[in-house]
Simulated scan of single mutants.
Amino acid sequence: MLDKVPMTQAGADALREELEHLKKVDRPRIVQAIAEAREHGDLKENAEYHAAREQQGFCEGRIQDIEGKLSNAQIIDITKLPHTGKVMFGATVDLINLDTDETVSYTIVGDDESDVKANKISVNSPIARALVGKSEGDEVVVQTPGGEVEFEIDTVKHI
């Protein structure tokens, strides 16, 4: 049996939207492309047919992947959990870099939801692993490729 995969409500909703798009838009478009390519005759040397079949394989693989993730998802709605000031999955954490006094904010999300540009980091990332379980006011040391970086946890928000 597979372990449950933590996921935020927003992440689960995004996967459901992608799944619906794949099933209702992409899959019929690909089937139509295969049908049109078949009409061109000899399938051995029909590049359009082979390209459409390859697209179909990718689409079906992604559908199976998303369905598997959703079936094993443990959806955690941080807004319904009591605010204790501790860093946990789904929380948004404001950090102060103790070397530069810069402030940065991260939301701790599941692996599939992570997007560094949007300041969403995976629960399995080095920063998140260093933060989870700590409280507001704690100092944490994060091992980065450039060396150790010290942060102070300024605020923990459930948004």
Score class of each variant (00 low, 15 high):
M1N: 11
D3I: 12
V5Y: 11
P6I: 12
G11R: 00
A12D: 00
A12R: 02
D13L: 01
L15E: 00
R16V: 03
E17P: 06
E18A: 02
E20I: 00
L22C: 01
L22T: 04
R27S: 13
P28T: 10
I30T: 07
V31H: 05
A33V: 13
I34G: 08
A35E: 15
R38G: 10
E39Y: 10
E39T: 13
E45L: 09
E48Q: 14
Y49R: 05
A51C: 00
A51D: 14
R53G: 01
G57Q: 08
F58V: 06
E60R: 07
G61R: 11
R62D: 00
I63W: 01
I63F: 01
L70E: 03
A73N: 07
A73T: 11
Q74P: 05
I75P: 00
I76C: 06
D77H: 04
I78P: 05
K80I: 08
T84H: 12
K86A: 14
V93R: 05
V93M: 02
I96C: 05
N97A: 14
N97G: 15
T103Q: 14
D111S: 01
E113N: 11
S114R: 08
S114N: 05
I121P: 00
S122K: 12
V123S: 10
P126Y: 07
A128I: 02
A130C: 09
V132E: 09
V132G: 05
G133I: 04
S135L: 04
G137P: 06
G137D: 08
D138I: 06
E139D: 09
E139G: 01
V140F: 04
V141W: 01
V141S: 15
P145T: 05
G146C: 02
G146D: 03
G146I: 00
E148G: 11
F151E: 13
F151Q: 14
E152T: 14
T155F: 07
V156M: 10
I159C: 03
